[in-house]
Amino acid sequence: MRLVLDAMGGDHAPDAVVDGGVLFARAYPGHELVLVGDATRVRPVLERAGAPPNIHLHHASEVVEMDDPATAAFRRKRDSSLRVGFELVRQGEASALVSAGNSGAVMAGGMLTLGRIPGVERPAIAALFPALKGEGRCLLLDAGANVDCRPSHLAQFAVLGEAYSRTRLGVKRPRVAVLSNGEEESKGTQLTRDACALLRRSDLEFVGYVEGKDLFSGDVEVVVTDGFTGNIVLKTSEGVGMGITGLLRSAIEKRGGLPEKLGALLLKPTLLGLRRVMDYAEYGGAPLLGLQGVGIVAHGRSSPRAIHNALVTTLQHVRAGVQEELTRCIANAAAWLPPHQRGRKADGDEGAD
């Protein structure tokens, strides 16, 4: 299999991205990796890292920067690493693209280059959260691709998320819910109430509303919301994870006596395991579900380990046949989903970094 990696995407590109690509290529010598980016900047990093023979460099002279207006930049910079990478996927020269760059541009580029699965109005970023019980994972979408959503968008997100959870994560019958400010039917907004009305007509295992805490409870496997709310939830959760780790370290170092420090030493393996569960780098990348092709969004601050894990996630995504199942499920859902509404196009600039 051949994967494309946007070598210029992310806060620490190209160094961290290229190093992560090299880690992946060494671990998976039976697969090829194409690094797309400015050869004058990427080649020295490759030479320093000692790149294996299954890595190839494809030159692209431009970069979509993190603060660029996403859709406009993608259209204007025709030789950007992101655009050239998506073109390789569209032309069948690669199976998927991974980028840690401007997530709005990744969404816009995917839609403009690959198009959407028939019946999907807007693709969604699907982010994984650790759960305390059940399958141990909860999928949240949209995690930042679409700020403004209609009820039909949330219903489509539910279909896409259920199919992904079942096909890629191995959940036999994923439970699906809408994120709200309470579990009672009277809570929520007009958007969430209308989305619930649609989902009650579906053949999904729909359980109604859940609150933010239920992302971690294990009581549901798929939670849908608009991209504005979803991205806030995602970034807040990341901050809480880092905050807990920092507060524990500070308490032990500054106020803990010898017993506390000995206890921390004994608990170190457990705390490291907890950190791995909460660390976004372990999950690598989030798939952009709904494209007619595979696009994976990695964290903008991705380290080499995070890039490596994003590529592993991408490889598993393609192997599992997720795309085929997404297409089949959306087609079947046409029986209860409302007809496609022609309105303002999803603007890639709405995507969150």
Score class of each variant (00 low, 15 high):
3 L>G: 06
4 V>H: 06
5 L>D: 09
9 G>M: 08
9 G>S: 11
12 H>Q: 13
12 H>P: 06
13 A>S: 03
14 P>M: 02
15 D>E: 14
16 A>G: 06
16 A>Y: 08
23 L>C: 14
23 L>T: 15
29 P>Q: 14
35 L>D: 02
37 G>S: 12
39 A>Q: 10
43 R>S: 15
44 P>N: 06
45 V>W: 08
51 A>I: 04
53 P>G: 06
56 H>P: 12
70 A>D: 08
71 T>Y: 07
74 F>A: 05
77 K>A: 10
78 R>L: 13
78 R>D: 12
80 S>E: 03
87 E>N: 12
88 L>W: 05
88 L>E: 08
96 A>P: 02
97 L>F: 00
97 L>D: 00
97 L>A: 00
106 V>D: 10
112 L>P: 01
113 T>P: 06
116 R>S: 02
120 V>A: 08
126 A>P: 00
129 F>H: 10
129 F>G: 05
133 K>E: 13
136 G>M: 03
138 C>I: 03
142 D>F: 00
143 A>C: 01
147 V>Q: 12
148 D>Q: 13
151 P>L: 01
156 Q>E: 14
159 V>W: 07
161 G>V: 01
167 T>Q: 14
169 L>Q: 04
170 G>V: 06
171 V>K: 02
172 K>Q: 13
177 A>E: 00
181 N>I: 02
184 E>N: 13
189 T>R: 11
191 L>H: 09
192 T>Q: 04
194 D>P: 00
197 A>L: 11
199 L>T: 05
201 R>D: 12
202 S>Q: 02
203 D>E: 11
205 E>N: 15
205 E>P: 10
213 K>C: 10
215 L>D: 09
221 E>W: 00
223 V>I: 05
226 D>W: 03
230 G>W: 05
230 G>S: 00
231 N>W: 01
234 L>Y: 05
235 K>I: 10
236 T>A: 14
237 S>H: 09
240 V>M: 12
240 V>F: 12
241 G>S: 12
248 L>D: 09
253 E>C: 12
253 E>L: 13
253 E>P: 04
256 G>N: 12
262 L>N: 01
266 L>I: 14
268 K>R: 15
269 P>Q: 14
271 L>K: 10
275 R>F: 00
275 R>E: 14
278 M>I: 15
282 E>T: 09
285 G>A: 15
288 L>W: 01
289 L>R: 00
289 L>T: 03
292 Q>G: 13
294 V>I: 13
294 V>H: 08
295 G>Q: 08
296 I>R: 01
298 A>F: 05
299 H>Y: 02
300 G>S: 03
301 R>N: 12
302 S>T: 01
306 A>K: 05
308 H>A: 15
309 N>M: 04
315 L>F: 09
318 V>K: 07
322 V>W: 02
326 L>F: 05
331 A>I: 10
333 A>H: 10
333 A>Y: 11
335 A>T: 06
335 A>P: 07
338 P>M: 15
339 P>Y: 03
341 Q>W: 11
344 R>W: 14
344 R>Y: 13
346 A>Q: 10
347 D>E: 12
348 G>R: 11
350 E>M: 09
351 G>D: 03
